[in-house]
Design a protein around this nucleic acid. Structure first.
Lengths: 165, 165
DNA sequence: CGTGAAAATCCGTTCTT
DNA sequence: AAGAACGGATTTTCACG
């Protein structure tokens, strides 16, 4: 489990840096936090073992790879007990980047990236609608994503800001 | 702009590794790709400058930081021209991690993380509903996130596995 | 555009307090 | 647990093919 672990102020500060830049050198973090690099190393390792840190990812702009269309799809299931099978099928679709089981009129909410509207249409009609257990879908195209960030860790921190170089 | 850039097979392969692990050493990538570390470095740098790579992020499990509730909120605006002001207000809310302007009955779709249902309630009633320009909201709580990944870059690749050195 | 090597930096471990 | 220090690996730059 990932529970039963105390994340103190320094841990949060470490995370606040790494959440913004996963390749930030530990030594630089150490300087910002005022402790040694070894301490950073130990703390990060501990948080990884505790499951607080799930991994790290380079952020690629979908548009740069030719994925111009972002859309959310609300999915209704014909029988709610077919959830597992539907998930398995969705995992095989490279266009799907998120899949949630949600409350409300839709059982499942998907987020996906497609090359263009034609590609989106193809994915909806030829793939998603053909998955056994899926009865109906409703699509919301994202025209603009204004906010994209991680879960809140800590304020940017007043950073001791060494007076001068 | 981030356009007008050709991402070739090697670039895609580099990205496919870094998308899964942003801290993967360039030299290790170099070995997998069969070219030198300097070449990897140059390509990554070029992709950063071209805007293909937006940055890198450590992935933190929200639950480990006490954010047990993930929810999507569909927001209707009283006047669609108030979009900018609404976005500014939403950016100040640490609970909001995504904000999209979408087609369909809702003008805006939010994704947010809260500590618990009480916190969610407070955010909805005391904060979101008070933002000028927001007329109505509908909330979908995510009971389970089954898929979480980046935009599709490339298949894991059969890795040419250098026959010998 | 890739290579190879040099210099600076960083990582991960060990030892000490 | 935290800090200092060491050897080994990595990042980054540069001139050359």
């Amino acid at each position: 489990m990932a529970d039963k672990f105390e994340v103190d102020e320094i841990d949060r500060k470490i995370l606040s840096f790494l959440v913004k830049n996963a390749r930030m050198p530990f030594l630089e973090i150490a300087r910002e936090c005022g402790i040694s690099g070894a301490a950073i190393h130990q703390r990060v390792k501990k948080m990884e073992e505790a499951g607080i840190i799930a991994g790290s990812r380079l952020t690629v702009k979908p548009k740069a790879l030719g994925f111009d269309v972002c859309a959310f799809v609300g999915v209704q299931l014909s029988q709610s007990n077919q959830y597992d099978g539907v998930i398995s099928a969705l995992k095989l679709m490279p266009e799907v980047v998120e899949c949630h089981f949600i409350t409300g009129p839709y059982a499942v909410l998907l987020k996906l990236f497609c090359r263009d509207n034609e590609h989106l249409m193809e994915v909806l009609v030829n793939t998603i609608q053909n998955i056994p257990g899926i009865s109906n879908t409703e699509t919301f195209i994202s025209l603009n994503q204004a906010i994209e960030r991680q879960v809140y860790v800590k304020d940017p921190s007043p950073s001791p800001k060494k007076a001068k170089k």
